[in-house]
């Protein structure tokens, strides 16, 4: 039986399975969006609670993941709107990562150097470009799925993806050499 149907049947194990399956990816996607580890954790937590309570609203069980993503990204947008007037710099983001402890110094340096490239560049994009790039490149949704998740026009999503790629490429050229965004 598919996962969504098990959720609708209120199977205890199904809730745990959904959290195990999508929890990390949603948290990372939300972290890239809101740039705040604790907030990302809270958003994903609220997303699961809301989704489980309103699971009857999910018509197509095969779209469980995109439905969860849609709820999570709407929450991210809402939180970002609340913080719009608050000064939010990269210092805050850096501060969150300063607290990450690595046992192996080499992995710490390696991780830090990598963070200087992709995730950092992604977090530095404008929100409207960032969300489309996260959904396309990290969550690996198609354009049509992103249109549905963000409730926007296809032309808008394509345009944001194009501009986001350009912006991303520019940022990466300043600090790294990841060429995946050139196309």
């Amino acid at each position: 039986m598919e996962l969504a149907q098990r959720l609708k049947n209120r199977e205890e194990a199904a809730f745990a399975d959904v959290v195990d399956t999508y929890g990390d990816e949603l948290k990372r996607g939300c972290l890239l969006m809101v740039r705040d580890r604790l907030l990302a954790e809270e958003i994903v937590q609220d997303t699961f609670v809301q989704a489980f309570r309103k699971i009857e609203q999910l018509e197509d069980g095969s779209k469980l993941k995109s439905w969860l993503t849609s709820i999570a990204f709407n929450k991210c947008r809402s939180e970002l709107r609340k913080r719009k007037w608050k000064f939010f710099s990269f210092d805050e983001y850096e501060h969150h990562f300063e607290n990450v402890h690595y046992d192996d110094p080499e992995s710490s340096i390696d991780a830090y150097s990598r963070r200087q490239t992709l995730s950092r560049a992604l977090m530095g994009l404008k929100q409207k470009h960032r969300e489309v790039l996260i959904l396309f490149y990290y969550q690996e949704y198609s354009i049509e799925e992103i249109v549905h998740i963000l409730d926007a026009k296809t032309s808008t999503i394509k345009s944001r993806l194009h501009r986001g790629r350009q912006e991303m490429q520019k940022k990466l050229e300043e600090g790294g050499d990841f060429h995946e965004f050139e196309r």
């Binding site: 929890g23 990390d24 990372r28 994903v44 991780a111 990598r114 490239t117 992709l118 995730s119 690996e140």
Partner: peptide
């Protein structure tokens, strides 16, 4: 490739 790279960079982030 981008997903792999991001997953690597964010590998310490778990729900």
């Amino acid at each position: 490739n981008v997903k792999k790279e991001l997953d690597y960079e964010l590998r310490d982030e778990h729900f």
